[in-house]
Computed example of a mutant assay.
Amino acid sequence: MVAAVVAGVCLWPSGDGGELPTARAYRDVDACLLTDSRGVAPGVPAAPVWAGMQEASRATKVRVSFLSATGPDTRANVEPYVNSLVQEHCSVVVAVGATPGQAVRAVAPRQKHVRFVVVGDGPGSANVSVVREGGKPEVQDRIRGLLTSLTGTS
Rank of each mutant, 00 (worst) to 15 (best):
G97F: 09
R105V: 14
V40H: 03
A126P: 00
T99I: 15
S125P: 03
E88C: 06
G39N: 08
S65E: 10
T35N: 05
F66L: 01
G124A: 05
R110G: 11
A41P: 13
V119R: 02
S91G: 06
P48Y: 11
V114C: 03
Q102K: 12
F116E: 06
V128S: 04
A98Y: 15
R132W: 04
E55S: 09
A69Y: 03
E88M: 14
A51L: 07
R105T: 15
V104K: 06
G43E: 05
Q54F: 08
V114T: 09
A126N: 07
G71E: 01
F66M: 03
R58L: 13
M53P: 00
T74F: 06
P100V: 15
V119G: 03
N77F: 08
A56W: 03
G97N: 12
D73I: 01
L34K: 08
E79N: 08
Y81L: 11
G71T: 11
L85V: 12
R58E: 10
F116Y: 10
M53D: 03
L85A: 12
N127H: 12
V82G: 01
K112A: 14
Q102I: 08
Y81D: 11
R132I: 10
E79K: 09
A46K: 07
V96C: 13
R105A: 06
V78E: 03
A95Q: 04
P72S: 14
G39C: 04
E55Q: 12
P109V: 06
P123E: 13
V131Y: 01
A51H: 13
K112V: 07
T99K: 08
Q102T: 13
V44P: 06
V119S: 00
W50C: 02
P45R: 00
H113P: 03
V117R: 02
G124L: 04
V86T: 09
R75I: 08
T70F: 14
Q111F: 11
V86D: 05
V92D: 01
S91P: 02
H89E: 10
G124T: 14
N127T: 12
S65Q: 15
L34P: 07
V64E: 00
S57A: 12
K112L: 09
K61L: 14
V44R: 03
R75E: 15
L67S: 09
R75Q: 11
P100H: 11
N127Y: 07
H89K: 08
V114S: 05
D36L: 05
G43H: 11
P45F: 04
R75H: 05
Y81H: 15
W50Q: 02
F66S: 04
V94E: 13
G39L: 07
S129V: 05
A56E: 01
V131G: 00
G101Y: 11
V82Q: 02
P45H: 10
P45M: 00
R75M: 10
